[in-house]
Nucleic acid binder design. Structure first.
Lengths: 206, 206
DNA sequence: GTCTATAGCTAGATAGAC
DNA sequence: GTCTATCTAGCTATAGAC
């Protein structure tokens, strides 16, 4: 029992420390020694938990993929939200809920995806398929629900989903920088909300 | 003379090879040996042209900064363009002109900025100040000219400049991936133009 | 300005004691 | 499961011959 707990604890520590270090220095900028030192063990001990360095990175990406898929609200959830919330508040809630679902490890992993997207195949896939593709399709499905309920006017939903999504993606880079540099992230959040207001103004029925 | 020419040529080769390799593997993923091998010289010879590895990276960022500042059309240029072009065509021309100004080395440097923005201070500055800040202010100044000429309706120009710019920035990431993977970049260009059409539709005088 | 040779260091990974 | 010790390979950078 104690064995299992301490095993889990050390592996978890390696996991979180790696996320933090990779997000600051990039995968190739962090050595197994640095990770071991920060965890408080010898580098050779890492190999009892992970096969090699690459497997640590892969486990980070897998965690991101699993967690973020679970978070996204279902179509039923959206329907319910629209019963008592405005279009604008639903979109704002999606951003707030997404932000709240991110612990500091997930924040770090997001940055690792940004950094490694041109070098690592898994990171590239997460960027293009998850952060761009799936997100856009999700927003398009939300727009379809709103259209069915006739609370937004007729628009090119694929286009508006892209407009909504790409700007938020770029702003999430700016957000990562603010958090990174220990600056106030409020101005970026404000920009996100201003963007949502702009889209909702466009969507308003005439 | 011949000395000068060959010197310039080797230095230029180091410059271009480094841009290519850094953009693929990241700064920390490329060794001086790899660069030397690809150039066709010994690694020690690099130090006759650059003080160290960091100076190669810095020179790449300086080149980006100098070139892109020179490219951006002046307010007078914009005024002239508007004499015989529509609002939409001016914006499309800005994207096309920007694209044409990029040789393959500048394409690579853009990717290096994306990769290194969270690790390298110069890259971070270029991302936040040049690609986000300056670009947005430039578009805002273009919108002001259009507004003065009364060819667009009254809007929050700071907001629209951000809407215009952030989506294009995110799409430029997708563009970099397409070029990177040897895929067809046309669908991304099409998305850029669709975005511009959307913004111009919004700007149309009533 | 390029070369050979090498210093001096750090990397990822493994063997075997406890 | 963690440790010490160590291997091999790779790294940046320099010295000095040509």
């Amino acid at each position: 029992m104690r064995n299992n707990e301490s095993k889990k604890c050390t592996k978890q520590k390696i996991f979180e420390v790696s996320a933090k270090l990779f997000s600051r220095e990039g995968y190739n900028g962090v050595s197994m020694r640095k990770i071991a030192k920060e965890v408080g063990i010898k580098e050779s001990s890492i190999y009892n938990h992970y096969k090699n360095k690459e497997e640590i990175l892969t486990s980070l990406f897998d965690y991101w993929n699993d967690t973020l898929t679970i978070y996204r609200p279902s179509e039923e959830d959206i329907e319910k939200m629209l019963d008592y919330m405005s279009v604008e508040d639903v979109f704002k809630q999606l951003v707030i809920g997404f932000g709240k679902s991110l612990n500091s490890t997930l924040d770090s992993i997001a940055k690792i995806i940004y950094i490694e997207q041109f070098r690592n195949e898994k990171a590239r896939k997460l960027m293009l398929e998850n952060l761009i593709g799936e997100s856009s399709r999700f927003i398009e499905s939300v727009l379809k629900i709103m259209s069915r309920k006739k609370i937004i006017r007729a628009v090119d939903m694929n286009l508006i989903a892209d407009e909504y999504n790409y700007t938020l993606l770029a702003l999430s880079f700016e957000y990562a920088h603010a958090v990174n540099d220990g600056e106030d992230a409020a101005p970026v959040i404000k920009k996100m909300f201003r963007h949502i207001s702009f889209i909702c103004e466009y969507l308003k029925p005439i």
